[in-house]
Amino acid sequence: MPQATRRAVLGAAAGTLLARPGLAQERFPAKPVRVFVPFAPGGTTDVQMRALCDAASRRFGQPVVVENRSGAGGILGAQALIGTRPDGYTLAQMPVSVFRYPQMVAKPPFDPTRDFSWVLQLTGYLFGVVVRADAPWHSFSELLDYAKANPGKVNYGSPGTGTSLHITMEQIALSRGIEWTHVPFRGVAEDLQALLAGQITVSADASGWAELVKDGRLRLLCTWGAERARRFPDAPTLREQGIDVVSESPYGLAGPAGMDPAVIRVLQDGFRDAMNDPVHLAVLERLDMSVAYLNSEDYARAAQQQFRDDGEMIRRLGLKAG
């Protein structure tokens, strides 16, 4: 074989070998993708994430399987990523508690600034405060007045320590000189069951309470968005109650640190398309949630800023995880 021809053949073979990773990336995903959801089945996050993952399955041509890891205020999904292969087949929903909890304990289970690959931001919650329909308070202001006059008598449920619900309720207590007791639960279902049973006085949670409010079993005292909720226009916002707080806690998806940028792009684009699937959008509307998309790069920057801002707030409030 002439030397020039031999060099051409070898060069073509080398090119084929170098192209294989690219071809493998083009075929991603080639097997099911697992998504950890760190809240209990049936709650707001679980319902939204299952609708999203169903839509993503159709776009990827592979199952996108939800695996619940409830408890610990929503950090168990992030914690489960530690030590997993950064191949794009294992992801987790990332509530804002993943930025807070590590700054509230002596031995953090992970470092959100280094341990994750941020894929995309998805949406945010409608938060609100509810009481039983037979409770004596018909406004959040009435509840605050009662709590102020009766230190320690009000206990409120939330999805866990370090969640936006917990921290915002403690911010309100600090600003109003209130003493009340936080009772963390594994998810909205347990929280609302305890409220209906009279085991707690108040629930501060995401919109899993919506149907119970519509059915007349619970009373919605306020919501925490910038504007009143579409389905609950009679419920004032915190700002309308004289509390200058907006809390919607946007969240998204991340994988382990070290993921291939090309794989991240495939996941980002596929889940972005799934977000706009009509079935998923209908679920968001039912839960009074909105699309809050950020691409991978912007989400990574937002995560860094969230970690810094939350650290300042935690130190100011003196919060520690129990």
Results as ranks from 00 to 15, higher is better:
residue 58 R to T: 04
residue 93 Q to G: 05
residue 39 F to W: 10
residue 301 R to E: 14
residue 54 D to C: 02
residue 144 L to P: 01
residue 46 D to V: 01
residue 270 G to S: 05
residue 50 R to K: 14
residue 172 I to Q: 08
residue 189 A to W: 01
residue 281 L to E: 13
residue 260 D to H: 06
residue 122 L to K: 04
residue 142 E to P: 00
residue 93 Q to Y: 15
residue 13 A to W: 14
residue 280 H to W: 07
residue 144 L to M: 08
residue 85 R to E: 15
residue 280 H to G: 01
residue 34 R to W: 07
residue 45 T to S: 12
residue 160 G to K: 05
residue 79 Q to D: 10
residue 251 Y to Q: 03
residue 90 T to P: 04
residue 220 L to M: 07
residue 239 R to D: 00
residue 128 G to T: 11
residue 30 A to M: 03
residue 4 A to V: 10
residue 24 A to Q: 13
residue 6 R to Y: 09
residue 11 G to T: 11
residue 157 G to A: 12
residue 192 L to A: 09
residue 210 A to M: 02
residue 319 L to R: 05
residue 8 A to P: 04
residue 64 V to R: 08
residue 54 D to H: 10
residue 319 L to E: 13
residue 109 P to R: 10
residue 250 P to C: 09
residue 97 S to A: 15
residue 25 Q to D: 15
residue 286 R to C: 00
residue 302 A to I: 06
residue 306 Q to W: 08
residue 195 L to M: 06
residue 57 S to A: 12
residue 203 S to R: 00
residue 256 P to C: 03
residue 124 G to T: 01
residue 24 A to H: 12
residue 214 K to A: 14
residue 173 A to G: 10
residue 61 G to V: 07
residue 157 G to E: 01
residue 100 R to P: 00
residue 243 I to E: 02
residue 293 Y to S: 03
residue 170 E to T: 04
residue 155 N to A: 08
residue 24 A to G: 04
residue 185 F to G: 02
residue 38 P to H: 06
residue 169 M to D: 00
residue 34 R to E: 15
residue 257 A to I: 09
residue 299 Y to N: 03
residue 164 S to N: 12
residue 63 P to K: 03
residue 230 R to E: 13
residue 205 D to H: 09
residue 255 G to H: 08
residue 298 D to G: 14
residue 247 S to W: 00
residue 270 G to F: 05
residue 67 E to H: 10
residue 272 R to K: 14
residue 170 E to F: 04
residue 108 P to I: 07
residue 233 P to R: 06
residue 74 G to W: 06
residue 93 Q to V: 15
residue 211 E to M: 13
residue 67 E to K: 13
residue 101 Y to T: 13
residue 159 P to S: 09
residue 145 D to R: 10
residue 159 P to F: 06
residue 214 K to C: 00
residue 85 R to F: 07
residue 304 Q to L: 14
residue 97 S to T: 13
residue 30 A to G: 10
residue 135 A to F: 05
residue 140 F to I: 05
residue 150 N to S: 10
residue 141 S to V: 13
residue 108 P to L: 12
residue 99 F to H: 14
residue 311 G to T: 11
residue 96 V to Q: 12
residue 34 R to Y: 08
residue 165 L to K: 00
residue 40 A to F: 02
residue 67 E to R: 09
residue 20 R to W: 15
residue 131 V to A: 09
residue 35 V to W: 07
residue 231 R to S: 09
residue 140 F to M: 01
residue 215 D to T: 02
